[in-house]
């Protein structure tokens, strides 16, 4: 099996598979803008999703009855395959082809993970700590901003990490509905049967996702100094 794969790979991997000339010729006007477009799509989506999820998560952590329906709805959104989601969104009046539809879908995909982690983060704050804060005369607003949120932050950042990695991956598919980004290189590479484009797009998208994963993990560890000594 592996020898078959290897021989097939060798057969197709001629010297022309990775056309370094193409890469150097198109680096500044095609590859760099694709990377920037991809980061833009992902960053804007996670930011919007966070703006929605933080208050929703805080409210839901207080009014527990709202939690099951919220996770049910966001869970449904999360399980819709991205190409289908994009194809459905494009038909909505006022959305259409382009980055807007991609961002809406990416925001919808982030909600489940982010809200779930905001709630888990708020739950992780010990009752005694809140009692102590109350005993010191802090108002509930002060407790929220000075005690609960800072203590919940590592768990929230863990959610941001999962959401970001997921979104960087899905954003590649957004290129199919003209969202731009690294998927553009992959799709044009497939349609023109030009492997260099495919490899550049796919490898850069992977690198971006892994890089985001590792750097957010580092932030998460930094915010959780008490867990650093324990095993991961």
């Amino acid at each position: 099996m592996s020898s078959l794969v290897a021989s097939l790979a060798l057969q197709n991997l001629g010297p022309k598979v990775l056309d370094w000339n193409w890469i150097s010729r198109n680096f500044s006007h095609e590859i760099i803008p694709a990377i920037i477009g991809h980061i833009y799509l992902s960053f804007v989506s996670v930011t919007i999703a966070l703006v929605i999820s933080l208050p929703t998560g805080i409210i839901v952590s207080r009014y527990r009855k709202a939690y099951p329906p919220v996770t049910f709805i966001t869970g449904l959104l999360f399980s819709i395959p991205s190409l289908a989601f994009f194809a459905l969104l494009v038909t909505v009046p006022g959305v259409g082809l382009g980055p807007r539809a991609v961002i809406i879908a990416l925001v919808a995909y982030s909600l489940l993970v982010l809200i779930r982690n905001v709630v888990a983060g708020m739950d992780s704050v010990p009752e005694e700590t809140k009692d102590a804060a109350r005993g010191m005369g802090l108002t509930s607003r002060q407790i929220l901003f000075k005690v609960e949120l800072p203590l919940a932050l590592p768990v929230i950042v863990a959610g941001i990490r999962i959401a970001t990695v997921t979104i960087i991956g899905i954003a590649t598919i957004g290129a199919y509905i003209s969202g731009g980004g690294l998927g553009e290189l992959i799709f044009t590479g497939i349609s023109r049967n030009f492997p260099t484009r495919i490899i550049v797009g796919a490898v850069l998208a992977t690198l971006l996702a892994v890089l985001a994963d590792l750097s957010l993990l580092a932030i998460e560890r930094y915010l959780r100094p008490w867990a650093r000594t324990r095993r991961t």
Partner: peptide, 18 residues
Amino acid sequence: IGRAVPSLAILALVFPLL
């Protein structure tokens, strides 16, 4: 790390190879 690899990237990378 495998989970971080975008699914379209895996499909697209398989294409020039197989």
